[in-house]
Amino acid sequence: MRSAPQGARASAARPGSRTSTSKPRAAAPAGGMALPRLVAFDLDATLWYPEMYMLDGPPFKLGHCSRGRPVVIDRSGEEVGLIGDTWSILHELHTDEKWAGTEIAYVSRTDMPKWAAQCLQLLKLDSGVSLHDFAHHHEIYPGSKRTHFRRIHERTGIRYEDMLFFDDMHWNIEDCAGLGVCAVYAPRGLRADVWKKGLAQYARRQGS
């Protein structure tokens, strides 16, 4: 996701999320495969497209694409929709009990954090929960993504080694991997093959 020199921080916790004072615990096994304590996603060109800097801005409204999935429409009629297999993957994370012990984060360097927040609030999963409320952590502001992850680590106590992250920008992957985060390159956005690759890569690092 592209960045700008300055910008406001937009950070919030999902209602009912686990407290930041909880001690980190080992990844929970599921079918013999270790699962991350936290799954983090970039936004622009990873979960949705177009990117925020490409839009004309608010007012935003909700619309539907040809497949019936919701999209956000900006003031000029540009549509922002989830790409790849994002919808089904987020649905799994929200509904499958095996993910009950995993926290979700958005880690974005956009210089339009308010626009991103509005899009997240408008887009909803089939259950009716918005993408905004679906996530425990919103680290959406310009700057190094190392800062984003450090803030999550300080707030939750979750080790970097227990985090899984997807991003379409390779240099962000390298930057976060330097902290110990299992960072997975998603050049065409979040797709099923990249998702499975990330889970397998994380499990190998955990020795499962």
Rank of each mutant, 00 (worst) to 15 (best):
M52G: 02
D85T: 10
S20W: 13
V71S: 03
R9D: 04
W99Y: 13
S127M: 09
L122V: 08
P36N: 08
A135Q: 04
I89K: 03
Q6P: 00
T46M: 01
L35V: 05
P113T: 09
V72K: 00
A40P: 09
R69N: 11
V71C: 08
S130Y: 02
F60N: 01
S130A: 08
D74K: 05
A105M: 02
M54V: 10
A135E: 08
L125Y: 04
D74E: 10
G101E: 14
A100C: 03
Y53S: 13
P113L: 02
K114G: 10
A8R: 15
E97D: 14
P50Q: 06
D133P: 05
A117Y: 12
L55Q: 07
D74I: 03
E103A: 14
L62G: 06
W115M: 03
A10L: 12
E103H: 07
R18F: 11
F41N: 00
F134G: 05
M112N: 11
I89M: 07
F41P: 00
M54N: 11
P59S: 06
D111Q: 09
L125A: 06
A100L: 10
P5Y: 05
F41I: 08
H64M: 08
A26F: 04
S130C: 04
L38E: 05
A100K: 15
L93Q: 13
P15H: 10
K98F: 05
Q6C: 07
F41R: 02
P70H: 09
V72E: 02
F60T: 03
E79W: 02
L125D: 05
Q118L: 05
A10N: 12
G7E: 03
A13N: 14
W115R: 02
L90V: 11
W99H: 06
G16M: 06
A28Q: 13
R37S: 13
L35R: 15
R75M: 13
G77E: 13
T110W: 03
A8I: 14
V71W: 00
T95V: 13
R75G: 11
S88P: 00
A116C: 09
R9Y: 04
V80W: 03
S22C: 11
K61E: 14
M52K: 12
V39F: 02
V129T: 15
T95H: 11
I83A: 01
A13Q: 12
G57I: 02
G32K: 08
S108D: 07
P58S: 09
T110E: 01
P59M: 01
D85R: 01
T95C: 08
P36M: 04
A45M: 03
Y106K: 01
A117I: 11
A10P: 01
S20P: 15
V71E: 10
H137N: 08
S11V: 06
V71T: 11
I73S: 00
